[in-house]
Structure formats: structure tokens, C-alpha cells
Amino acid sequence: MSELCDHNKPELQATVGEGSNPAKHWFVYLIRTQQGVLYTGISTDPARRLRQHQGEIVGGAKALRGKGPLQLVWQYQAPNRSIASQWEFQLKKLPKKAKEQLVSLLWQPEFLQGIQQKSYSDK
């Protein structure tokens, strides 16, 4: 299972990503709405993205408008944007029960196993 880290204390190693900035990290993340729905997305900065989704700054997803308060409950670093997008697609296909197990760190999908990146979980 992955190591836990506080998203406010960046302890992640730089990874080579796609594009011109080799230090740019990509993450797949889950956000929980007030109704308990889990929203899946990708970002280089999940904390900033949460602020966007909450309407604090411009750029949030329409699907999350009016669904707050929102909570970032899980994130996982991907080697690059392409893989983060692939993981996002795969996570979106999972049933809610599987996503809840992922958030609880009771389960990890095969496509994430063996990846030695750090994750964050906050219930």
C-alpha cells in the first residue's frame, strides 16, 4: 500500500512529466460532495483545484457547482499527464463501493499497484 503524506507538506519526489516542465506533478484525485458523491479528476495541484471547484477561484467543474461543501478525500501522484488521464478514466468506471474502499485505504486497483508514488487520504 502507498505511503501517506500530508498534501500541505510536499514530500513528493520530482517526476518527469509530459511537456516542457519536467518537475510538474500530475495527480488523480477524488472529491466528496455534501451528498456523499465522489467526483474524480486530475490536476497538477489538487488543493488549488478543490478551491476552484468550491468557487473560491475561477475554473471549477460545472458538475460540482452548488454541491458543497466539498472535501478532497484522496489523491495519487501519476508519472505524467497521460497516465493521470488514463487512471481518471478507469477510476470513473469503478462503482462507488470500490472508490470508498480506495479512500479508506482498504483496497487499491491493479492499475495503481506497483507504482511507488505517495498518496494522500483524509476522511
Rank of each mutant, 00 (worst) to 15 (best):
D45C: 10
A61H: 13
A14R: 01
A23Q: 04
N21I: 13
S20P: 14
K97A: 14
Q75R: 13
V16E: 09
Q117K: 12
G17H: 05
K93G: 08
T15H: 00
R32C: 10
H7A: 07
L106N: 14
T44Q: 10
L12F: 02
K67N: 11
Q13M: 04
K24R: 15
T44D: 11
Q90M: 09
V28M: 02
D122V: 04
Q35E: 13
L38C: 10
L102G: 01
F111L: 14
S20H: 11
V103T: 06
S2A: 11
Q77V: 15
N21E: 15
S104L: 14
K92R: 14
P10T: 00
Y76Q: 12
L50A: 05
H25Y: 00
G36M: 03
V103F: 11
K96L: 12
K92V: 02
R51Y: 01
E18R: 10
C5D: 09
G66T: 09
P69M: 04
K118F: 00
N8Q: 08
G68A: 10
H7L: 05
F27I: 02
G17V: 02
K96P: 00
Q35Y: 00
A78Q: 08
V28Q: 05
T33L: 06
K99G: 01
K123P: 12
A98W: 09
K99V: 06
K9T: 08
P95W: 00
E110Q: 15
P109T: 05
Q54P: 00
Q117H: 15
Q77S: 10
F27R: 01
S121C: 09
P10Q: 07
S43H: 12
A23S: 05
W74E: 03
T33P: 00
T44K: 03
G19K: 08
F111H: 11
G36W: 02
V103W: 12
E100H: 07
G55R: 06
V103Q: 09
L70P: 01
S85A: 13
D45S: 15
C5P: 00
H53Q: 09
P69D: 06
V58M: 03
G60T: 03
Q35A: 15
Q13G: 09
L105Y: 08
A23R: 07
R32P: 07
S82E: 14
R65P: 00
L50N: 01
L4G: 04
K9S: 12
G19T: 03
H7V: 07
Q116A: 12
